[in-house]
Design a protein around this nucleic acid. Structure first.
Lengths: 337, 337
DNA sequence: CTGAAAGCGCTTACAG
DNA sequence: CTGAAAGCGCTTACAG
């Protein structure tokens, strides 16, 4: 590997001139420039990032921390993040935390290699987040409630949650079950809150039961469906399913739907999801669409502004969501006659 | 941020002693060590990775290049890779290439920040791969044919492909359609080759038609199903579907199945996938299981050996696969009576 | 066991 | 417009 000294020697100039030629060509005399560029080309000189970074005291890299990549959700956020980061020439480091014992060590280590961090949802505990903030690590929080002084981007749950519940009520649903545990993720808590609020605002008498699940994937959705099928009584009506299952995300809902279909009980209960992943469309799943990639892209932009110093006051972006009504949420017009 | 000089001054020792205390505590006198450690602790000293890396001339990081993370496949490989990399204290940089114009620039840039690179499947063109090899970037190739001198890990397609075809033939299938384009990925080419070989070995007269698709996702699977449904003639039998659709991966197969079900034509044609993603089980998809996370984990181990210098001769790991027979591949015993 | 010094590969005031 | 020099924050022979 040729270093800047090799180029300088071969071109008969100082290393300062080589550096300048590469970073700010206009400041150097045309024939010097040509000479240096030719030599650099000939020696296949690639400036060492390490040397440059140490001198500039910046990494030109940012890290993204997420629970895992198994579902479509975090993977999509990461893709959105990475595409913007690549555009602005910032490298992306990743760290997954699910099931890992040494999260604090991993994340701290990563922070030492980055100019800033993006944290997705429930990836790390609050205490660690506070530590990072205390050490002045530039931070952007995605889909996670935040203190006012930290940049964040999330999606709006309230309006769409209300619309979702209105839609279910209009279809005749009264006894709802929320599938998901609000303590697993701030997003889930928001969604439940929106649903609850909408139900309380309803003039009709309604019930809301929470069916907690440990994880937001299809497997747990299937298990939830099994449990509900096995349960003898719902909403006071013995021997029936509840009117509607409001699932905390699409993966759960897809698992629920699959299981209901297998059991020959689909069409007996309304099912809704949240996210609008690719598979939701094909499954006819009524859901709330959120711009997942855009969540990551926005996080990248917020972090860039912060690192570039073009903005010093915190921002809290909230991306809009929208109710997408498909067939899974409707009983009327099915075999209801 | 405290530097090593701050600690040295406060502790009344040289920076060399601070460095030693942190890297090789035994070589330092116990009370010196205690003094240094206490000061480091008090100042919350965290050695700069940049300084250390420049001095050691290594990044302690590796990069992984993949087409994208939208499906479950690459995401899982990346997770497998990341979990091992984190264990051995190596940071993970990522770069996705699908739909990107400046792949060469991005990858070269990334190579300059890593000690080595892992390349997944068709993520980058051969020419770029050769460039990297020429620059002596340590490389591990995943699911991609390789020159003998480069480390690689892939899965075995032949035996399982043969088993898959035998299974279909035993069920009575004679006219097969392979859904997928062998030019999109080396994996696909391998799978097609295995299928073709097995058919040629069959004593029965069989046909194999290739139905190319641009991408290996559910959307393209659905489109393929539509096209096949619209086609008037298959395998010489007018007005019918082919006997079996051998899809290049599970995502395609799941798209095909969904579309067939929607059209009320499921059960009329055998469908198989490849990968055994999570959803395959629920869809009853017959497929070839490959250890996807293990693919990433193995790549990480190969790269570590190479970087640590514990191995200097190339290795080519081939992970076993297995046929998983579910319901999608069988017509007999269905509505075939 | 410890320190002074050179070096890793750059950038960037400061002079000239 | 260009060069000599200091500095970024570490590690590691080399002496002692």
């Amino acid at each position: 590997m040729a270093t800047i000294r090799d180029v300088a020697r071969e071109a008969g100039v100082s290393i300062a001139t080589v550096s300048r030629t590469l970073r700010d060509p206009d400041v150097v005399k045309p024939d010097t420039r040509a000479k240096v560029l030719a030599t650099a080309e000939r020696l296949a000189f690639r400036p060492s990032h390490l040397g440059r970074q140490l001198a500039e005291r910046r990494h030109a890299a940012a890290g993204v921390v997420f629970p895992d990549l198994s579902g479509p959700y975090y993977a999509d956020v990461v893709m959105g993040y990475e595409s913007v980061a690549a555009e602005v020439g910032r490298s992306v480091l990743i760290c997954s935390t699910r099931g890992r014992a040494d999260v604090e060590k991993q994340v701290t280590e990563m922070a030492g290699r980055c100019d800033g961090l993006v944290v997705l949802g429930p990836a790390i505990p609050d205490a660690l987040l506070r530590d990072l903030a205390r050490q002045h690590v530039p931070l952007v929080l995605v889909a996670r409630p935040t203190s006012p002084e930290q940049d964040s981007v999330s999606t709006a749950a309230t309006a769409s949650g209300h619309a979702l519940v209105r839609h279910l009520l209009e279809d005749g649903a009264r006894h709802l079950v929320f599938v998901g545990d609000p303590s697993t993720s701030p997003d889930v808590a928001d969604r439940l809150a929106a649903v609850r609020q909408a139900l309380e605002a309803s003039p009709e008498p309604t019930t809301l039961t929470i069916h907690p699940v440990d994880d937001l994937d299809e497997t747990h959705g299937r298990a939830a469906a099994d449990a509900l099928l096995a349960q003898p009584t719902h909403g006071g009506e013995p021997g029936t399913l509840p009117d509607a299952l409001v699932c905390a995300n699409d993966e759960l809902a897809l698992g629920v739907l699959t299981r209901l279909t297998e059991a020959g009980r689909d069409g007996e209960v309304r099912v809704t999801g949240w996210d609008d992943v690719m598979a939701a469309r094909w499954a006819g799943l009524t859901t709330v669409r959120q711009p997942v990639r855009e969540l990551g892209a926005t996080a990248a932009r917020l972090l860039e502004e912060r690192l570039a110093g073009t903005r010093t006051t915190p921002r809290h972006e909230v991306l809009e969501t929208e109710l997408v009504v498909r067939t899974s949420s409707t009983l009327l017009g099915k075999d209801h006659a």
